[in-house]
Design a protein around this nucleic acid. Structure first.
Length: 497
RNA sequence: GUCCCCGUCGUCUAGCCAGGUCAAGGACACAAGCCUUUCACGCUUGCGACACGGGUUCAAAUCCCGUCGGGGACGCCA
């Protein structure tokens, strides 16, 4: 058990896959939060021993995701592959101290036994054949060139190995149920269980916070710690995130939605994603849901992690929700409630990508820019909405929504005549603002006897391309006299086309 | 199959450890109404869950047992 005085050291140890998986990101978030909360260190270690998957690009994908989320690490990235010698040495040490032994059973042999056990519905466990070999016999085997693996010698003890998981509580595993597992392959390379434990020891990890799929490995790793005479870290396993069918979420079956990068591309604020992810299987005593970074760090505790797996509520092909609705709603809330300046630079990036950014938004038109974002953001859900739905505010090239056209324009043939007339009236306004345009339009309505809803909705459709949006007069004020009058004048072309 | 873990509204969850204040609370989603020139804005209301069966108890979502359901682990993968 680590001393209370010890500085907390946690790690996130992904294997490189080219992108950061949201499940992995959640694990990273919990570790990062725990480190920050306890003023400890958050260490990044890449478990890259599966060589062919570990390219520079696939590692970069992970780092990129973490950086975007704002999960800064204090040490690393370390690479597991760099420590292979240490892992081998640990295995040798285990053999010398009688905690491991060489096993000459062939893979084919073991496969057969495993298969036989399966067909006869018997539980399979390695029969410890080579454990009984004398030192002399082992040496002879080796001398005659028979390949061997190294197995860990599970102690012959009565009862069960018990450890206290910080999330799941006491976990028991009978020694009888643990088989002598392989720690070194026949080519001498180390296996995950060993490497992982040795690295954690070397990195001085005090708390192993990882997915529940590591829970069943823990007893074996504890045995390695013991045999190596290392101090045990605390373990905290977190529930998994599954899909609606209770399957693990993966890029293979679910596509890009499981990748953190997807959320950047789709207009998420990184912190909104973090906030969503942290809520998947964790809560505060007072059930708060929205946190600033500092609030979250202060509020975070392993106690709040639940034990049941949670579900990522993603319905493929849903036209309205391209990801979990709760994630979208949290994102929308941040877009709505953050100080505008904080979202403005991120919207700038999006507008630039779309070729819609005017450098004056940083200068003379700064105030207009911020006011317009304020006007729009109340009903937007993602940053991308500013370049799609918000396009008519920044550009003259935009599509008119077909439904809006049918409903607000084509249904009323008279508007074809009215709108250009209205454009005339508006163009004569000496000053341009919501109050002025409202007065002018209401005056026009009185004069022509047109329905106010008809005119207002028609104007909205022509000027913004949509049937929905903020109050019309504020829209007009934001879009500006020039653009508004031009769009109204050109309106009959729309009907022709 | 064996071992381990889990099981409250559609989803995230509160409550469970220290049984009564829970005819089970919040959030998201959904529905209706209101507002309004419109809406994926706002406001109000509504719909909706203790997996099942036993037991203990004056009293059980909360404790015990069983059943069922789900997940994970059982590799010379990580």
């Amino acid at each position: 058990m680590p001393d209370k005085s010890d500085k907390v050291r946690v790690r996130f140890a992904p294997s490189p896959t080219g992108y950061l998986h949201i499940g992995g990101a959640r694990t990273a978030v919990y570790n990062w939060l725990f480190a920050r909360k306890h003023k400890g260190s958050f260490i990044l270690r890449i478990e890259d021993t599966d060589a062919e998957r570990s390219t520079t690009d696939s590692i970069e994908g992970i780092l990129d995701g973490l950086k975007w989320l704002g999960l800064d690490w204090d040490e690393g990235p370390y690479f597991q592959s760099a420590n292979i010698n240490a892992h081998k040495k640990a295995a040798e040490h285990l053999i010398e101290t009688g905690h491991a032994y060489k096993c000459f059973c062939t893979k084919e042999d073991l496969d057969m036994k495993r298969e036989a056990a399966k067909t006869s519905k018997q539980p399979y466990k390695y029969d410890r054949n080579c454990r009984k070999l004398s030192a002399k016999e082992a040496a002879e085997n080796e001398a005659s060139g028979i390949p061997c693996v190294v197995r860990f010698k599970v102690p012959d003890r009565e009862g069960a190995l018990v450890f206290n998981d910080l999330v799941y509580g006491p976990i028991e595993r009978h020694y009888d149920d643990i088989e002598d597992f392989v720690i070194l392959r026949s080519d001498g390379s180390p296996l995950y269980l060993l490497s992982n434990a040795v690295d954690d020891i070397n990195d001085g990890i005090t708390h192993v916070i990882r997915g529940q799929d590591g829970l069943a490995n823990t007893p074996r790793q504890i045995l390695i710690y013991e045999a190596l005479g290392a101090r045990l870290p605390e373990f905290a396993h977190m529930p998994l995130t599954l899909d609606l069918k209770k399957q693990k979420i993966s890029k293979r079956t679910h596509g890009e939605v499981v990748a953190v990068q997807f959320y950047r591309e789709h207009g998420f604020l990184p912190w909104a994603l973090v906030n969503f992810l942290v809520l998947l299987g964790w809560h505060t005593p007072d059930d708060r849901e929205i946190f600033t970074r500092d609030e979250l760090i202060a509020a975070f505790s392993l106690d709040g992690i639940s034990r049941a797996n949670s579900i990522f509520n993603y319905r493929p092909g849903d036209p309205k929700f391209f990801t979990d609705p709760k994630a979208l709603s949290i994102n929308a809330r941040y877009i709505k409630e953050l100080p505008v300046e904080e979202i403005a630079w991120q919207i700038k990036d999006k507008l630039k990508e779309a070729g819609l950014y005017d450098t004056q938004y940083d200068g003379a038109k700064r105030q207009w820019f911020l006011d317009t974002l304020n006007l729009l953001r109340v009903r937007y859900h993602t940053l991308n909405d500013f370049v799609t739905l918000g396009r008519p505010y920044f550009s003259d090239e935009f599509q008119i929504d077909q439904k809006a056209l049918n409903k607000n324009i084509l249904k009323y043939p008279e508007v074809k005549d009215w709108l250009p007339q209205l454009a005339e009236a508006l163009s004569r306004l000496p000053t341009w603002g919501a109050a002025e345009t409202e007065a002018a339009i209401r005056g026009f309505i009185d004069k022509t006897g047109a329905g106010s809803g008809v005119i207002i909705n028609a104007v909205r459709t022509v000027v913004t391309g949509q049937a929905v949006g903020p109050g019309l007069f504020e829209c007009l004020a934001a879009i500006g006299k020039e653009r508004v009058t031009t769009r109204l004048k050109n309106m009959p072309n729309l009907v022709m086309a």
